[in-house]
């Protein structure tokens, strides 16, 4: 890998980005930090509250702490399940797509369609689609002899949200993987043919390593989005039944706007944000280190 020249004037090229992102990032973040450190007696009378809200949220024996850890585990298992299905499925479908010809364009447009539907519309579609009486999906599952009702059964509700996410976002993994696959020069495949390599060997030795870079983008993006999921469960299940699909962001909005418990909500959202960033950082570091080692 060639060393990049050191040039601190490059900062000038980054400044516009910094300005636009800071404008929207800094003040809202500071507002949340403010709330997390203060308590209110109502009517905009705030006083310093130190780290009390944070200790509350991180203590599983308090009411809010128990809720936080429950939602956190629900979120982690949801993200894990979604990624476990979406990434392999996405790569597999990308491999099945034609490499050239008339069918490429229509296939890509069809695949991208679910991603282009506004999130509340996605929720609305599935709200009806999953119903056992008037929806195709619910009726079909029940027709197979599996009792299914996503508004009553917690497990069914959780699985429904996973299925929605798989339906909605596997296309992102497909598009990124497909773009990555198209960037592999034909020479690689010709060499493999001369060596009479099996399909599996081609996949493991040529395609997968070349896909690593796009997969980092795909996995990180999907992790962030699944970890912050809000609209779909909000519209389809409303966080229920019980609290089966009350993910962190849904719980936060309930606490902040429903109970107007701003201190707890702010502390919780900062901890939540920190967890997301830490997990992404670990993953990002591992992937980029692997990359560097291979280049060296």
């Amino acid at each position: 890998m060639i060393e990049k020249p050191i040039n601190n004037r490059a900062w000038l090229l980054v400044l516009p980005v910094l300005a636009f992102v800071l404008f929207s990032a800094l003040l809202p973040m500071m507002t949340v930090v403010n709330y997390s450190l203060q308590d209110s007696m109502g009517a905009n009378n705030f006083f310093w509250n130190g780290d009390a809200w944070f200790r509350d949220v991180l203590n599983p024996s308090t009411d809010i702490g128990a809720r936080f850890f429950d939602a956190l585990i629900r979120n982690l298992s949801f993200s894990f399940a979604a990624l476990l299905i979406e990434v392999p499925l996405g790569i597999a479908i990308a491999l099945c797509l034609p490499r050239s010809g008339w069918a490429v364009g229509p296939c890509l447009v069809l695949i991208a369609l679910p991603m282009l539907i506004p999130w509340n519309v996605v929720g609305t579609i599935w709200q009806i689609f999953a119903r056992a009486d008037i929806g195709l999906f619910g009726a079909a599952i029940n027709g197979l002899g599996i009792p299914y009702n996503d508004t009553q059964d917690p497990v069914a509700a959780w699985i429904t949200i996973v299925i929605i996410d798989v339906w909605h976002w596997t296309p992102l993994v497909i598009l990124l993987s497909y773009a990555g696959l198209r960037a592999i020069p034909d020479a690689f495949y010709q060499a493999a043919r001369i060596d009479a390599a099996s399909r599996w060997a081609v996949f493991v030795n040529i395609e997968l390593p070349k896909l690593q870079k796009v997969l980092v983008i795909a996995v990180l993006l999907r992790f962030m989005q699944t970890f912050m999921i809000y609209t779909e469960p909000f519209v389809v299940t409303g966080g229920g039944p019980g609290s089966a699909t009350t993910f962190l962001s849904i719980d936060l909005v309930k606490i902040a706007l429903g109970q107007v418990d701003l201190g707890n909500a702010a502390a919780m959202s900062l901890i939540y944000n920190l967890i997301t960033i830490t997990l992404c950082w670990i993953f990002y570091t591992i992937m980029t280190q692997l990359d560097r080692r291979r280049d060296a």
Binding site: V21, P28, T31, M228, Y230, A256, S269, Y272, Y284
Partner: peptide, 21 residues
């Protein structure tokens, strides 16, 4: 990486501060 962390801020949480800003 800081730029990327901005992708990780849940809109549901920051909606109200955004409104204020």
């Amino acid at each position: 990486f800081w730029l990327l962390t901005n992708l990780m801020a849940p809109a549901s949480v920051y909606a109200m501060p955004f409104f204020n800003l």
